[in-house]
């Protein structure tokens, strides 16, 4: 396990030097079409998202972290489930138009951990899901001009706690590339 972590770190730190370009996305907006407790579908905004992308010849590796939460309550009772996701995306270049616009498709593989805090009449419990795998299918349109990099992704996510299955998602990212 230690060797695997070590190898991952070496890979992570050597990626920028191996990549043709590196993009950082401090601004990322993600909306998911998710299901609430009454089985109604609604658009939920992710609380925070950060992303980086390493572009190679025809391949783009992305690393992302996202936080979001679900809440439910009634008199005396409340529930809050907070998800922390770490995701890697593997996109393959499908084609380019107008030199600046690139179309990618690929998959995402990541881990999430959710914490459920439920409280009743002032007494609270916390339950942790442990680390759980999730995957996604991704189609991405990216605009790169000079140092400017914008991406609009459409994703279908699958994780055992995600409803509906798969969960459609849209991600819009703006960042710099160098």
């Amino acid at each position: 396990m230690k060797q695997l972590i070590g190898l991952s770190f070496i890979l992570l730190f050597s990626l920028p030097s191996l990549a043709l370009s590196v993009s950082l996305f401090p601004f990322a907006l993600e909306q998911r079409y998710t299901e609430n407790e009454n089985q109604d579908l609604y658009m939920q905004k992710m609380d925070s998202s950060l992303a980086a992308a390493f572009s190679f010849d025809g391949y783009q590796l992305g690393l992302e972290t996202t936080k979001w939460s679900h809440e439910s309550s009634a008199p005396l009772i409340s529930y809050k489930e907070t998800y922390t996701e770490l995701n890697s995306t593997h996109l393959f270049l499908m084609g380019s138009t107008l030199e600046y616009l690139h179309l990618y498709s690929g998959i995402g593989v990541g881990m999430y951990e959710s914490k459920l805090k439920n409280s009743f009449n002032g007494i609270a419990n916390e339950t942790n899901s442990g680390q759980t795998l999730f995957a996604s299918g991704i189609a991405s349109a990216q605009f790169v001009y000079s140092y400017f990099h914008a991406a609009l992704d459409f994703r279908l996510l699958m994780g055992k706690d995600y409803r509906p299955q798969p969960t459609p998602s849209g991600v819009f990212k703006i960042g710099i590339t160098f």
């Binding site: 299901e35 407790e37 679900h70 459920l116 439920n118 339950t127 899901s129 706690d161």
Partner: peptide
């Protein structure tokens, strides 16, 4: 209704929302 639960390490299903509760 569709109940939503989180299973804890002891195998207990914890309701995640009021409807499930």
């Amino acid at each position: 209704p569709h109940g939503q639960y989180m299973k804890n390490k002891d195998g207990v299903f914890i309701p995640k929302n009021f409807l499930t509760q």
